[in-house]
């Protein structure tokens, strides 16, 4: 038993090393003075300074944030209403609709990208940040919906009935009882959709036009032009930001859980 346990622990720690070592390496070498070598040649912050003076990078960050905020807002409103609507109503063919709405979660992202590209070209809408935002909202609706629906399913229907019994209208019951109880799930959905949008490369790649470069597109073009310490520095910053977002979401969960 103990031997087996020890073996499992070593295997698990090895897995953890596999998951974290590459990220750690990136961060460490973002401070390496050498431009080309993977050997340690002394500490420097020059790559960060170079990033700080890259105006295209800031424009890309701005674009990404804009797309993420707007697409998350759209996806949240649509996703929550879809979750409530599908959970509360019964109509013929509902299972088909349920399944269809989950499609973006399972079909290859490349497929979504080309479909949207084709669509926008066919209806002769020029590719821009607007088309990118529409695409992001499309794949984020099911993300929000799935999270909210899981929570909705666990809610006791008697709660809303109790509100109705105490004189609330259907809307009041939803607004005053159900919605507050759903808020942790909605916040979770918002965070998830926001992150997925910020990180998305493929759908953006197909739906972005000239001048609508987002951060992942910028990162991609930097990587494509060759390994360089600036990418390490940018990666380190992105890792830091995502860690901060996780910490924030943990804190919010704890606050909401109480």
């Amino acid at each position: 038993m103990t031997g087996q346990r020890r073996w499992l622990r070593s295997a698990s720690l090895a897995n953890l090393l596999f998951l974290y070592a590459p990220i750690a390496v990136l961060v460490v070498f973002s401070f390496n003075a050498s431009r080309l070598s993977a050997r340690w040649q002394g500490f420097t912050l020059q790559w960060y300074q170079m990033l700080a003076s890259d105006e295209a990078l800031f424009a890309a960050v701005q674009n990404s944030l804009l797309v993420a905020v707007v697409s998350t807002m759209i996806a949240t409103i649509l996703g929550v209403s879809a979750a409530v609507g599908l959970e509360r109503s019964h109509f013929p063919g509902q299972r088909l609709v349920d399944g269809a709405l989950l499609l973006p979660l399972v079909i290859p992202e490349v497929m979504m990208g080309v479909a949207l590209l084709l669509f926008f070209v066919m209806i002769q809408v020029p590719l821009s940040l607007v088309t990118v935002t529409i695409g992001h909202a499309a794949f984020n609706v099911p993300v929000v919906m799935v999270i909210v629906r899981a929570r909705l399913r666990k809610l006791d229907p008697a709660l809303e009935e109790a509100a109705r019994d105490l004189g609330a209208t259907a809307w009041q019951a939803f607004r005053r009882v159900t919605l507050p109880l759903l808020s942790p799930a909605i916040i979770g959905g918002v965070l998830m959709a926001f992150t997925v949008s910020l990180d998305d490369f493929i759908v953006t790649f197909f739906t972005a036009g000239p001048g609508s470069t987002t951060l992942p597109l910028k990162v991609y073009s930097m990587i494509k032009s060759g390994v360089s310490p600036e990418i390490n520095a940018l990666s380190a910053i992105l890792v830091l930001v995502s860690m901060a977002l996780i910490a924030l979401s943990l804190v919010m969960q704890r606050v909401n859980g109480k």
């Binding site: 953890l16 998951l19 974290y20 590459p22 990220i23 390496v25 990136l26 070498f29 080309l36 070598s37 993977a38 050997r39 992150t195 990180d199 490369f201 992942p216 990162v219 991609y220 990587i223 390994v227 990418i231 390490n232 990666s235 992105l238 890792v239 995502s242 860690m243 977002l245 996780i246």
Partner: peptide
Amino acid sequence: LIIIPFWTNFLVRTYAWMFILRSEGLFHT
């Protein structure tokens, strides 16, 4: 700990392996 890397940008995580595996990369060094 398992989920954190998943929240890190996919391009960045892929780039990490380019950095490690390229012919003069860390692995080789």
